[in-house]
Structure formats: structure tokens, C-alpha cells
């Protein structure tokens, strides 16, 4: 369990945006793993299995939560989905290169939580869980166009937040 608990917790936390919920999900993941210990014990696929279960349980939780808000949150017009948003600022060649990996991780996790669910979730599935656009669309049961638009907008919203780290990462070090 110790070998995988950080990975499972990270997956759930980045997807749900809530540490408390991530801890509950991680607990459930390890209980399910314990119940299947005979199959998973020394299996080389145990890590992948744990990650998949953590992702699915997180998405189940988000789906239940989303149903309460679906009426309002999905009232997008077709135009809204098809519009190709433009980036109005210069994209830098690198990001956070001057930070160590742990500092970078802290900063990324802190700003990731500021994105709205509909941008953070596909962004995390794409950049952290390394799923394709098609896989994300299938998992979230939304159109491929919406996935691409949300990920693009998520990146565009995340960029200035990541760049702003120059002003405050010293404060985080204290």
C-alpha cells in the first residue's frame, strides 16, 4: 500500500479537487485492492489497476455531484462548443523551469484547484492520466469537441496562474 498510496491519492485529489474526498476515495480503492489481494498481490499490473479504480471512483463521485448541477452547467450553446478560443497572450517557451520538481508539484497542485471542474477534469485526464481525447470523451460522456474546447480553455486559464508563481513561490517556501 505504501508504494502506491501517493499515486492513488494524487489521482483522486487532482480529479475531485478535494483532499477530503480524495482520502475517502483512496480508502475505498485500497479496500477493494485488499479484497482482490489474491489476484493483485504480486501482479505487475497492480499499479495500473489501482490507478484505473481511483480514476473511475473519482469520476463516479464527480458524476453524482455533476447531476445536481447539470441543468445549469451544461446549458452551452452549440456555438459555445464550436468556437475555437484564441490565446491573446504570448506562450512562453518553458514553464516553471527554474523550480525543483517538488516545488513545481506544489505550485501546480495549488493552482489546479482554482480551475472549474469542467476544465480541470479533462485537463487532468489528458496531462496527468495520459488519456487520449477520445478516451476522455467516452469516460465523461461528452462530445469530442467539448473535451478539446474544455482542455484548451483549461490550459489557457492555467497558463497565467502558473506564470504568476514568480510572485508567490517564495512565500510558499517559508
Amino acid at each position: 500500500m505504501r508504494a502506491y498510496q501517493d499515486m492513488v491519492f494524487s489521482t483522486a485529489s487532482r480529479l475531485t479537487g478535494s483532499d477530503a474526498q480524495a482520502e475517502d476515495i483512496a480508502q475505498e480503492v485500497f479496500i477493494r485492492a485488499y479484497e482482490r489481494f489474491a489476484d493483485l498481490g504480486n501482479s505487475p499490473t497492480a499499479g495500473g489497476w489501482l490507478k484505473t479504480v481511483a480514476t473511475n471512483l473519482s469520476l463516479n463521485y464527480l458524476n453524482r455531484h455533476r447531476k445536481r448541477w447539470r441543468l445549469f452547467s451544461e446549458m452551452h450553446s452549440a456555438q459555445d462548443e464550436e468556437d475555437s478560443p484564441q490565446i491573446e497572450w504570448e506562450v512562453p517557451d518553458t514553464l516553471l523551469e527554474d523550480l525543483g520538481s517538488e516545488q513545481r508539484r506544489q505550485w501546480v497542485d495549488s493552482v489546479l484547484h482554482q480551475l472549474p471542474d469542467h476544465q480541470r477534469i479533462p485537463l487532468v485526464l489528458y496531462h496527468f492520466e495520459e488519456l487520449s481525447y477520445q478516451e476522455i470523451a467516452a469516460k465523461l460522456q461528452v462530445s469530442l469537441t467539448k473535451v478539446k474546447t474544455d482542455i484548451f480553455r483549461g490550459r489557457a486559464a492555467l497558463l497565467p496562474l502558473l506564470q504568476a508563481r514568480g510572485d508567490s513561490h517564495e512565500a510558499m517556501d517559508i
Binding site: M1, R2, Q5, D6, M7, V8, F9, S10, S13, R14, D19, E23, A26, Q27, F30, I31, Y34, I87, V91, P92, D93, T94, L95, L96, S101, E102, R104, R105, V108, D109, H127, F128, E130, F152, R155, A156, L158, L159, L162
Partner: peptide, 26 residues
């Protein structure tokens, strides 16, 4: 370019440490 820069910044980051209480809870 934005996708490439984000990929470089986000992929391969270390995981978040799980809370100490997780193991005892499980």
C-alpha cells in the same frame, strides 16, 4: 505550443503525498 509547454510542465510531476492518516484509516 501551449499544449507542448503544458505537457512539459505537468507530465512527470511527482505525486502528492497521501495524508499520514490514510493507512490507519484503511
Amino acid at each position: 505550443k501551449l499544449e507542448q509547454v503544458m505537457n512539459e510542465a505537468l507530465r512527470g510531476l511527482p505525486p502528492r503525498p497521501a495524508p499520514d492518516s490514510l493507512e490507519s484509516r484503511v
